[in-house]
Design a protein around this nucleic acid. Structure first.
Lengths: 173, 173
DNA sequence: AGAATCTAGTTGCAAAAAGAGACCACATCA
DNA sequence: TGATGTGGTCTCTTTTTGCAACTAGATTCT
């Protein structure tokens, strides 16, 4: 990730990608969710170069996704553990895994399945739902300005909503 | 993204990131979900250089996330539109947006809100659910081998499950 | 005690990728 | 005919990556 001012963008996706959006970062986190905690283990599992790994781990620590803990009783032993913020990425990674399962590997070729560990039953595909819990499709969704919308965001949104209604309204359907 | 063999990895997250995991790609898709379709518009909105944008769009077309359509009645006019595969990323992008809202911008500072367009009501936070629909937390989840698991994946999984049960079992919890 | 080893990196260098901006081909519009 | 717009490519410079060697503190082996 370059030093673009992700930190100034008025968009949570861009801001989130400022933390995660590097080529390696999400793979490092996949490993972390798989229980990997040590520098050498990340290195071996990912076949990533040390300097890049070092940078990325530091970046994730700086942004609060991982914490670096000295667990050294004998010699320097550090562990990189998921923070609360990091663990909350479960949803994102699971959605991504399911998308890959569906569209790249195809049904029936899932390498890993996420299950409820007490029952062993697979979880549901992650979906977007209304407040009453019913699932909702992409075309029924729309973006609206939130409390943190900048003037620019509001303007873009206006253009977007105009185009959208023009597309679906025009005495067709 | 480098020419690592993402295409050979036995992991849907890695494979999905082979398609999306580049620094720019998810931002391009965010724009696409915002209704942007034309080269010049992506360029202007993202402040991305033309050569990189060109490559990324091509990459997304090659992998079936976008399709390039000639809509030119007068002169060359191409549009890059989300395919079905692309639209199915709504869940991933929404989960990412919500994560950014929660942990980076903070509650009450959301620039954009995803709503049900017919009622205007905000959607639920994306969650992982059991097959009966009840939400389930990260610690109740576990990975199991799926039908497409390679031998290597199975071995790693075994080690992971062993460590996990060692951590939670030991006459404590 | 001294040598080898292990962990967790840092440093230096060559190759690859990104960014900026000029340039281009084709088509329309005035 | 000339100006303008679209959708790029080409070239050059700056950054980032990957690889390998090296370091530093602590431990284990003999």
């Amino acid at each position: 990730m370059r030093q673009r001012n992700w930190n100034q963008e008025n968009c949570s996706v861009a801001r989130a990608l400022g933390v995660l959006g590097d080529t390696w970062t999400l793979l490092i986190l996949r490993e972390a969710f798989f229980g990997t905690r040590r520098f050498a283990d990340f290195e071996a599992r990912l076949a990533i170069s040390k300097n890049v790994l070092s940078q990325r781990l530091q970046h994730l620590v700086d942004h609060g996704v991982l914490e670096k803990i000295d667990v050294g009783r004998h010699g320097p032993r550090f562990e990189y553990r998921l923070t609360h913020m990091g663990k909350d990425l479960t949803t994102v990674l699971t959605a991504l895994r399911q998308w890959g399962d569906r569209w790249i590997l195809g049904e029936g070729n899932e390498p890993l399945i996420v299950v409820d560990r007490t029952t062993g039953e697979p979880i549901e595909p992650v979906r977007i739902r209304r407040s009453d819990g019913s699932p909702i499709g992409p075309r029924e969704l729309e973006l609206r300005a939130g409390p943190g919308a900048s003037e620019e965001t509001r303007e873009r949104l206006e253009a977007y909503l105009e185009k959208r209604s023009a597309k679906t309204d025009p005495r067709k359907g």
